[in-house]
Nucleic acid binder design. Structure first.
Lengths: 196, 196
DNA sequence: CTTTTTCTTGACTTGATAGTCAATAATAAC
DNA sequence: GTTATTATTGACTATCAAGTCAAGAAAAAG
């Protein structure tokens, strides 16, 4: 009955995510988005309420994709140590030459915690990631590979924090070697003595 | 010969720093600055070339003050462990109720590493902080208090990263307990076995 | 082929904000 | 007191970006 949409909404969302990730919310103009998506302004406005709405949807998409990756990783049939090693391997985070850090962390930094919706996304991500990490760490502890001096929960928060820091280093322009070194140290220190 | 300035430049700079720290560069309007400093627009423009110049000077001021604090701490006549404990004590970072994180980290996040001048400030800060941390850690290692499994340089980068992560958590709205727990875990894991 | 519906397009509006200008005020040197 | 110099002030300008509007285009249904 009606004229069908000519552009792929999901594709446009992914492209917008890339832009927001690289430039942040404030620095991204709507023109940047129309340019990246090759979709005209009004067409985007038809689907997404406004720039902020598009941003929030991109943020949620990012979270879902990250979590999906981590969950897939967690469910693999390999030793918990190997899982942690992959998670602590910086090269897995780094795509392209752009040092854009973690989109979620960048957004948390940009908005602070006074923006309810962004804050909600960030918390959600935090919780989910820590939960997955904790499960892997618990496995590692049960197998005597990870130190028992701290609880799995403490270590999960610890590791998550180390990764956040690393993403910050990335954003701040640190070299791959520096970042990898830090993650490796953080990883090593949480191992049981006999597993080092 | 001429009419003297009525406002204290240094005081205005400090006040501007507060605003930039809380809101970031982009989100701070010049009006915010005139309001915070109670100095009229043109008077600020007389002293500082523009908003960006004022921002960069605030950033440098922040770095100097942080470094001064850490250096004072490093030179105290207490055990290296005590020094590290103070540095890892989140309550020392936290002022007011505002969760504004580390101004340097926030700025690094906001600008990415494509802005040369901001990047320079951030790198400078990084290097200086790590250098101070390394010195304390080396002391700790010599006294058998800090693990020798990693070099002092590695551990300094590690600790700096953990602190960055913690400031990010702060910005992202984590509770004091959560932040303290993470820092405490990071601190504990770098201790020698007998010092735990 | 006509009608209906929704997409597309570019021009337009509105609002915010960085930075400028020119008139005025205040002070120190002479 | 006069003059020269610089600070102060508020109005002004220019720019840019988000969001709106209305006309036109395209497709599906009958």
């Amino acid at each position: 009955m009606s004229r069908p949409r000519e552009f792929d909404v999901d594709r446009a969302l992914h492209q917008s995510l890339e832009v927001f990730w690289t430039k942040g919310f404030k620095s991204t103009t709507f023109e940047d988005l129309t340019h990246a998506t090759q979709v005209k302004k009004q067409s985007l406005y038809c689907v997404f309420k406004n720039k902020r709405d598009l941003f929030l949807k991109a943020l949620a998409l990012y979270r879902e994709e990250r979590i999906a990756f981590l969950e897939e990783m967690a469910s693999r049939e390999v030793s918990p140590l190997e899982k942690l090693e992959v998670i602590c391997d910086y090269s897995q985070y780094q795509n392209k030459e752009t040092c854009r850090g973690c989109f979620m962390a960048n957004s948390a930094m940009e908005f602070g915690n006074d923006d309810q919706e962004v804050y909600h996304e960030v918390s959600l991500m935090f919780e989910r990631v820590e939960c997955i990490l904790e499960k892997i760490i618990r496995e590692g502890q049960e197998q005597g590979l990870v130190t028992n001096c701290q609880s799995s929960k403490e270590l999960a928060a610890y590791l998550n924090n180390a990764i956040s820091g690393a993403r910050y280093m990335e954003r701040a322009g640190a070299s791959n070697e520096q970042i990898n070194a830090v993650l490796h140290t953080s990883f090593t220190l949480m191992l049981a003595k006999n597993a080092r």
